Simulated scan of single mutants.
Amino acid sequence: MSTIGYESWAVDLANVGAIYPFQGWEVAMTVIGVLFWIGWHRIQFVRENAHLENAKKRALDHERIQKSVERY
């Protein structure tokens, strides 16, 4: 099975164009890659903000701070 349209490599490669797989899909793969990249950054942004918000709530928990100070 060939993804570039050649069944045999017994040709003059000087007359052959691109020999990489999935030729013609460059734009579609670039668009998919950029969308994946943006989606991944969005997911990371949401998760990190939730983590930081939780850490902020824990840091500003006055009852917890008071309990830790009273122990000593």
Rank of each mutant, 00 (worst) to 15 (best):
R71K: 15
W37N: 10
H41D: 09
L52I: 08
K57E: 07
S2Y: 12
R47P: 10
T3Q: 10
R64H: 09
Q66H: 08
F22Q: 04
E70K: 10
K67G: 01
A55E: 06
T3F: 09
A18F: 05
W25E: 15
I38Q: 01
V27T: 15
L13M: 09
N54S: 00
A18S: 13
N54H: 06
K56E: 07
G24H: 14
E63H: 05
F36H: 05
Q23F: 05
T30L: 11
F22W: 12
I38N: 05
N15I: 07
L52N: 07
R47Y: 15
H62W: 05
Q44W: 07
F45P: 09
G17V: 11
V69T: 02
D12R: 06
E7T: 13
V69A: 01
G39C: 10
Q66K: 01
A14F: 07
V69D: 02
S8I: 08
K57M: 04
E63Q: 03
E53N: 05
E63Y: 07
Q66D: 07
I43N: 04
E26R: 11
Y20Q: 14
V27Y: 13
R64T: 01
E48W: 03
M29C: 13
W40T: 12
G33C: 03
S68E: 07
K67L: 04
W40G: 15
M29Q: 10
E7Y: 04
V31L: 14
E26I: 05
V31P: 07
K57P: 00
V11E: 02
G17P: 10
V27N: 14
W9C: 12
R64L: 00
K56T: 08
A50K: 09
K56S: 08
A10D: 14
I4N: 03
S2D: 07
V46K: 05
T30G: 14
A59M: 04
R71L: 15
H62M: 00
G33D: 04
E70R: 04
V16P: 03
N15W: 07
G39H: 09
V34D: 03
H51K: 05
H62C: 02
E70L: 02
E26P: 13
K56D: 01
G24R: 14
H41Q: 10
S8N: 09
W9D: 10
V31G: 11
S68Y: 00
Y6F: 15
I32G: 13
P21N: 12
Q44A: 13
V16S: 01
